[in-house]
Amino acid sequence: MIGFYTFMEGVIAFFLIAGGMFAFIGALGLTHLKDFYMRLHGPTKTSTLGVGCVLIASTCYFSLVQGGISVHELLITIFLFITAPVSAHLLAKSALHQKLPHDPRTQGHPKEFDEDEENPKPSERAGITPPP
């Protein structure tokens, strides 16, 4: 039967390693994926999850060391979980606004790529009726 402090030390060590691995995998995705819309996928999920794991570990550690329950690290967690989708949405909107190139194997065609008022291409628009 292991003691309570040894068990909590194992839990904290697990959350620390998991957070570091999540952050590293997110940074690898940011560096190695092909186009911007793929690169947006990695950091927005894994970085917040990695920092979330580290903050859970910090909460457990300071609750264990100082006695009582220390929950003020949860403020950063809640703030990051609220703001990360907002900033990812704005980044995707600005990338679509700038019409960044995407991988040709990407399926689907967002309508932001069609709105090309400056130099329309009638050969590509020939058989397409605009939506009402």
Binding site: A23, A27, L30, F36, P43, G50, L80, L91
Partner: peptide, 14 residues
């Protein structure tokens, strides 16, 4: 430019 903004965003989170 959005690549650089995304990289800075990830950097402050890290």
């Amino acid at each position: 430019l959005p690549d650089r903004i995304l990289a800075l965003d990830t950097m402050y989170i890290n």
